[in-house]
Simulated assay, not measured.
Amino acid sequence: MGERLGLYVIIVLGEDVIQIIDAASERDGWDGPLAATGLGAFGLLAAICTLSLLYGTNGIPRLRKGALAPRPAMLLHAVMTGFLVALATALGSAVAHVDDVLPKGQHWLLCGAMAGYFAAGLVTALPLADRSDRVWLLGWALPCLTVSVALAPLGVGLPAWATIWILVALVCWQIAYGPGRSGGGPSGRRWGRFPRPG
């Protein structure tokens, strides 16, 4: 089941890529803002793929294999992919509006989709962690959740590419967050290191 759910996440991310390409193909030519927006959107999807599939299970970041029964895992997977579908719409709109500020509704959708993605990862991992690991997990998730929520009202005037690159930095924070230095939390488990598939 885990392999099939992971494959579904890959398909959803592929649809996100199609949205970006379709929006970019409607423009006459490449320029700086389009390049920055397009590369940022691809970078965001690649970072999400890394976090969800290489550092998680069933497409859910930081979820340990076998930690959840199949039905809760499928429910959480559905929630997570729902946020990725919303992200696809927002990224397509961002590429279509590279010359001006992203419409307010689309900006809120972009930030809200990522905030939901971060929140779902935290809600999944926190109850399954030992008490000593919870502080580590809060440091992993809360900064990203807080910044993405604050970015919705405070970043309305930012160009689309700037918003996207801030979100890329947040996902990269979760990928790089201290497993090598902290040992994966006080209990010594390496939350950041999961066996590679295959």
Rank of each mutant, 00 (worst) to 15 (best):
R71N: 04
R71Y: 04
R71C: 03
P72A: 11
M74A: 15
M74Q: 14
L75K: 10
L76G: 07
V79F: 10
V79T: 05
G82Q: 04
G82Y: 00
L84F: 05
A90E: 01
L91I: 07
G92D: 00
S93W: 03
V95W: 00
A96F: 03
A96G: 12
H97A: 14
V98A: 09
V98W: 04
L102F: 02
K104T: 15
G105S: 07
H107D: 06
G112N: 02
G112D: 01
M114H: 00
Y117T: 05
A120Y: 00
P127Y: 10
L128C: 11
D130E: 15
R131D: 14
D133E: 15
R134L: 10
R134G: 05
V135L: 14
W136D: 06
W136I: 01
L137G: 08
L137N: 09
L138I: 13
W140D: 12
A141S: 13
L142N: 11
P143H: 11
C144P: 06
V147M: 11
V149H: 04
L151A: 11
A152C: 11
L154D: 02
L154M: 14
G155W: 04
L158W: 12
P159L: 12
P159M: 13
A160Y: 02
I164Y: 07
I164K: 10
I166Y: 01
I166F: 03
V168D: 13
V168T: 09
A169W: 10
V171D: 07
V171W: 09
W173M: 08
A176K: 07
